[in-house]
Design a protein around this nucleic acid. Structure first.
Lengths: 230, 230
DNA sequence: CATAATCAGTGGTAACGTTCACAAATGAAC
DNA sequence: GTTCATTTGTGAACGTTACCACTGATTATG
């Protein structure tokens, strides 16, 4: 909780920088300039330097940045030095794909518990992850000290499951449902709305296609749609 | 291609508005105010009015907005009045989940062709969608008049497949790989980076947890990370 | 050691996005 | 028809983000 105000736009780019630094490190590179980084992550080099500067002077003029130390620095910032357990609420199509999706590959994040209501699933183990009934959600979150959850349930129970997550002490929810759920202050929701993304993409290619000078980020991620509190 | 400059932030919210308008219409509601919309989509009411105003005067003072006509208006804007075919490149875990994911439910978007290199998959039909070898990609895009693609391939072939897509005439790519691919002017890439999202979420809950007054949009869709050209 | 090339850090500014606050328009009530 | 309650549309203020352009530190070269 050290540095006060890292801009949100900067925070969203940190994982991108971190990933590429890992790549450079594994490729044996010792140094990198903001210009080289810029090419790979497609972020303006001035923006990269500004982003890094919020954390202090991490580079050396005339030299660039030391890959290993910068990588380690961001590793700590992104909590990659310890394992983060995540709950998966809703083990349907998308949920199961996320179980298979290897968050751990180069990342200290793993889904450690799944929750569903479907009787066939409960008690089974998928990709090494035990599936519990949602009735056990609050209890398990507490027991396993989980404070981050992925929500992949049908829309009509999205708010209900969110309330349970909040009650279980979740602090962060990655919401794959199209519902904008309501949460109390202190809980952060990150919306990943796939249909929304696709529709936006289609809108852009239909209405922005001939505006040439137009290269930028998120998003956002767009996709990027996140908010805090209610 | 009518109205010139709809802000990107506005464009990203259109699908959200559209979806809720559909919901209201199906619930038999005839009118809605920006304040009511605001509650549901969690966007400030002034922002909603501003967003709508870019398209002209869509509402009536003292009344609000007519649900049906607004819904139809956005339906056209979002190309929902005609079917959009999308290609899926990479029919692995995530790809198959997206095949199952019902984009068509309330949306005139469907995945109409899948592409992979895995021999077991080629020639099969998943969820009604035929899977072709990637060697047929360029040919099929052309034949099926597809200009939007979802990219869910391993990182190491992301750029190669992107190049094929561009060659096949794709104008929009929803990129699920962590690679920031390079594309020529006129092609829009929308990055959906799940690991990135999760890491950002974890970063936020660790560093922003006690900054209370902090509720906003996108996304930082974030997730929302999109760009144009190279 | 001197000169050239490189490159981080940052002040300034422009572009973009959000929100306040209010006038003008409309509908509802009686 | 007058009054009251709503609610849009928008000028203006504010906040955030991105980028240019330059200074000065450092390395590389001969």
């Amino acid at each position: 909780m050290a540095e006060k105000k890292i801009p949100k736009a900067t925070a969203r780019r940190l994982p991108l920088y971190y990933r590429y630094l890992r790549f450079l490190y594994e490729a044996g590179k010792e140094r990198v300039s903001s210009a080289k980084l810029s090419e790979a992550v497609k972020v303006d080099s001035a923006t990269i330097r500004r982003d890094f500067s919020y954390f202090g002077a991490l580079g050396k003029r005339g030299y660039g940045y030391d890959v290993e130390s910068l990588m380690n620095f961001f590793s700590k910032k992104l909590n990659q030095d310890r394992l983060t357990n995540v709950a998966l609420v809703g083990v349907g199509n998308l949920g199961q794909a996320l179980l298979n999706y290897n968050f751990r590959r180069n990342n200290n994040i793993r889904i450690s518990a799944g929750f569903d209501v479907h009787e066939d699933l409960i008690g089974t183990i998928h990709q090494g992850v035990p599936i519990y009934h949602v009735d056990e959600l609050i209890e398990q979150l507490d027991m396993q000290q989980i404070d981050v959850a992925i929500l992949t349930v049908p829309s009509d129970i999205a708010q209900e499951m969110t309330d349970k997550l909040v009650e279980g002490g979740a602090k962060g929810i990655m919401n794959f449902t199209p519902i904008r759920v309501t949460v109390p202050k202190g809980v952060r929701v990150h919306n990943v709305d796939l249909t929304n993304e696709l529709q936006t993409l289609i809108y852009f290619i239909n209405y922005y296609q001939d505006f040439a000078d137009d290269s930028e980020e998120e998003a956002d991620n767009p996709l990027d749609d996140l908010f805090y509190n209610d």
